[in-house]
Design a protein around this nucleic acid. Structure first.
Length: 498
RNA sequence: CGGGGUGUGGCGCAGUUGGCUAGCGCGCUGCGUUUGGGACGCAGAGGUCCCCGGUUCGAGUCCGGGCACCCCGACCA
């Protein structure tokens, strides 16, 4: 009877989805939220639009932080910390800035049970309060450049939120620098964009396109904004980091001035650049597959998970002993290793569990390995038997390092090939551009940059320009804007975006 | 802020035209047997059915009003 068949079918489906995650092809959004929650990266919070970052997710973020912080320091920046609360009047000093941010501000009006004389804005970004500080700190050209970074949380009152990708409160770093000349400031802007790209490509294994934002997509208060753009597995674009040339806009608003070599008073040129916990979302959506996460070894909280296997108490002793010895050696060598000694779970369950959590390499140690002085290694990036091999316990550290490097390289290669296969130079005019975008591909086309043109694409294809790539395919040439036909000096990518 | 959907043990769900003690799977606890690709048996614990009000002898179920969350669109890292 059909009346019974339907519930039975449903039941089976539920059992499957309980074990794993919704396949990407079935529902990418569902896949994403499944993965984030089932792998214990993050959880929803009692406050709408906010998130709880769980230890595994925070450890991943710590990997991002570490990779960036090292690079910031290597390029001469120092960390500092500025207040969470900003006097409301500060925001209003830069006209475009306040206009851009006022719709999404959280404002504190009561403190200690009393109405505040001046409301305090919870920082959506810190250009203003850091500008105020820079004004105090900078007097002479000898104080420049001033290169500061802060790791902080910021709040933007978002209407539509998504774990890691857009939450009302998020973690990030914001770099703020002041320079004597525009040339120096622009150089800094580009240098830090390059740092982001270097981090994304080499640590996160995410191929990114560096480019300049159109005037419509520019940061509120900037002269020019640059970004790194990444393609997710659903082929949507994700802005994964931004760097801004702020000109003298904030310097003038906050009177950040210095005396130059000729004893003339000058306004500084400032920059700012930021990368947020959104990067975690980028990592998830760049590498993840139907099984769950696939984490790049450089950032993976656990690089190697060890699964001990034994049948009886007789086998147990030698296996545990071997596991402890090998894991100890790996730890000593700086490999992030975790031994899964949960006793109530079968090895098969553990294999699937750690694959879902994206651990790059699994090491199995069983009685046969003890006897043969071997271990089994299984790569997360190569499914099934093809990715499994037995290696000697001698020289294990080197063998594991080699494989982690290979996985890191393979993830980058797979992501690059995937992205490149969905980039298209548009040759068939405007209709072709719309067709490409609507087909969830990225279109590269001549674009004059006009707001009207961008608006038209938005209406026709629910997408905007992502950036004018720094690396232009036809340098030195010009073309006809794919939208209005007017003169265009550069080509831009267009794509649906997060 | 518009459109759609969902609120029932930790998670996923069922619950008929209102009816008796609110069920099922997974997970959880205990004991035992298991363990090289998602183990099994037995015994347990766990629920203000999102909230408020109404109709009724009786509401998880019907009515009214709220709230929350998810998904899809306009703004944003």
């Amino acid at each position: 009877m059909t009346g019974h068949a339907i519930p039975d079918e449903r039941k089976e489906q539920h059992n499957v989805s309980q074990q794993g995650v919704t396949p990407q092809s079935e529902d990418f959004s569902k896949w994403y939220t499944d993965v984030v929650q089932k792998t214990d990266l993050a959880d929803y919070s009692p406050v709408r639009g906010c998130m709880i970052i769980k230890p595994y997710g925070y450890e991943l973020w710590e990997g991002v932080k570490g990779g960036l912080d090292r690079r910031f320091k290597a390029t001469g920046h120092r960390n500092a910390y500025f207040p969470l609360f900003i006097p409301e009047s500060f925001l209003k000093k830069e006209a475009e800035h306040v206009e851009g941010f006022s719709p999404e501000l959280a404002v504190v009006t009561i403190g200690g049970g009393k109405q505040l004389e001046e409301p305090l804005v919870v920082r959506p970004t810190s250009e203003t309060i850091i500008g105020w500080a820079f004004q105090k700190w900078i007097q002479s050209h000898r104080d420049l450049p001033l290169l500061i970074n802060q790791w902080a949380n910021v709040v933007r009152w978002e209407l539509r939120t998504r774990l890691f990708l857009r939450t009302m409160e998020f973690l990030w770093q914001e770099g703020h620098t002041a320079h004597a000349t525009h040339e120096d400031a622009l150089e800094e802007t580009m240098r830090m964009l390059g740092v982001y790209a270097d981090f994304a490509i080499n640590d996160a294994a995410i191929p990114v396109i560096q480019g300049r934002k159109s005037s419509q997509e520019r940061f509120a208060g900037a002269n020019a904004s640059f970004s790194i753009e990444a393609m997710m597995r659903d082929r949507k674009a994700l802005q994964a980091g931004t760097s801004h040339d702020l000109g003298q806009n904030f310097a003038k608003a906050f009177e950040i001035q210095f005396t130059d070599e000729s004893n003339e008073l000058q306004y500084c040129w400032t920059t700012s650049w930021g990368l947020s916990t959104r990067m975690v979302g980028a990592i998830i959506m760049t590498h993840g597959d139907d099984q769950g996460l696939r984490l790049p070894p450089r950032l993976a909280p656990i690089q190697v998970v060890v699964v001990p296997i034994f049948r009886s108490d007789d086998e147990r002793g030698p296996v545990v002993e071997t596991v402890e010895r090998l894991a100890g050696a790996l730890r000593e060598a700086g490999v992030r290793v975790h031994v899964d000694d949960r006793e109530n779970l079968s090895p098969g369950f553990k294999f699937n569990d750690w694959e879902m959590r994206g651990v790059p390499l699994r090491m199995e140690v069983g009685p046969k390995d003890v006897a043969k002085n071997s271990v089994a290694l299984a790569r997360r990036d190569i499914p099934g038997k093809a990715g499994k091999e037995f290696v000697s316990q001698d020289g294990l550290v080197a063998a594991i390092r080699e494989r982690l490097d290979a996985i890191q390289a393979n993830l980058l290669q797979q992501a690059t090939e995937f992205r490149d296969s969905h980039l298209h130079e548009v040759t068939g005019g405007y209709d072709d551009l719309i067709r490409v975008i609507k087909g969830d591909e990225w279109g590269l086309a001549w674009f004059c940059g006009a707001a009207d043109c961008e608006q038209r694409v938005k209406e026709d294809a629910q997408a905007v320009s992502r950036c004018f790539p720094l690396e232009q395919p036809h340098p030195g040439e010009t073309g006809a804007c794919v939208i209005c036909g007017g003169e265009a000096k550069e080509m831009a990518y267009f794509a649906k975006a997060y």
